[in-house]
Design a protein around this nucleic acid. Structure first.
Ligand SMILES: [Mn+2]
Ligand SMILES: [Mn+2]
Ligand SMILES: [Zn+2]
Ligand SMILES: [Zn+2]
Lengths: 126, 126
DNA sequence: ATTGTAATTGCAACTGTTTTGCATTAAATT
DNA sequence: AATTTAATGCAAAACAGTTGCAATTACAAT
């Protein structure tokens, strides 16, 4: 796999993330693109886009993988680490621009912190 | 289901949590008790103990459910909310006695915060 | 433009995890 | 001891994600 090919399906998923401002669960993506591509293709494309630093993933409250576009990441490193918010009413999931301060724990070296916030989103509050 | 029965299997799982100081993944529990009870029984007992406020659950880094005993919870509410730590080397998972400060987000009401810390545990550091 | 190549896809089968329906067992009440 | 019904075991189903392989297709070379 020396060259990387910009196939029709890769383009579709890329374009989706270009304009989508929230995060989306992998099953919703499978559903959304079920006419355009096979579900294994989606999983493979998401893996690839994540490797390339174009999207990042995290686990939602249900344990399902969610994806959102990255800001300044590349295939070397994901610098875009932040909490995520999930609305328990409408299911909306999004990235939160907020720096997680990793607490120091005695005798341990904490390398990563994953923070998932749940509650009611702006839309659902009214 | 008016009465609640203290069966042999419920007693076994309860006793396990009485003495186990860490958190444990559901599949490890299935494995550990595979001679004593059926898989579905474990899942049902864990649901029940969680309802009763005797154990609490959270998702590990792999998205799999983990369980640990509760301190001061009951069937009305789980007051025992805290971060968890998972060692990426040995897989050990434990509760972290540390108060999560829930960040206020504009236009949203954040009700819950789930924080998972990953890194190297005391045992694995030496 | 045509051809050669290998990266990518579709498909169907498979793996791993959790849930479910139902007949059977056994804990608690009488 | 008999009765009641909560809890269990089992096997099948549901669900999410992965894999092997043949067919397709992007794209570099000609
Ligand atoms: Mn994000
Ligand atoms: Mn805990
Ligand atoms: Zn909402
Ligand atoms: Zn360790």
């Amino acid at each position: 796999m020396g060259v990387v090919r910009t196939t029709k399906t890769v383009r579709l998923v890329t374009q989706f993330f270009d304009t989508y401002e929230h995060a989306i669960g992998v099953l919703d993506l499978v559903e959304k693109f079920k006419e355009e591509m096979n579900r294994s293709t989606i999983y493979r494309i998401l893996d690839r886009l994540e490797d390339e630093g174009k999207v990042h993933s995290f686990l939602g409250a249900n344990g399902l993988k969610h994806y959102a576009k990255c800001k300044d990441c590349n295939h070397k490193e994901h610098v875009d680490v932040h909490p995520h918010f999930q609305c328990t009413n409408c299911g909306m999931v999004e990235c939160v621009a907020y720096e997680i301060k990793i607490p120091a724990l005695p005798d341990k070296s904490v390398e990563q912190a994953q923070l998932l916030l749940t509650g009611i989103c702006a839309n659902c509050k009214d």
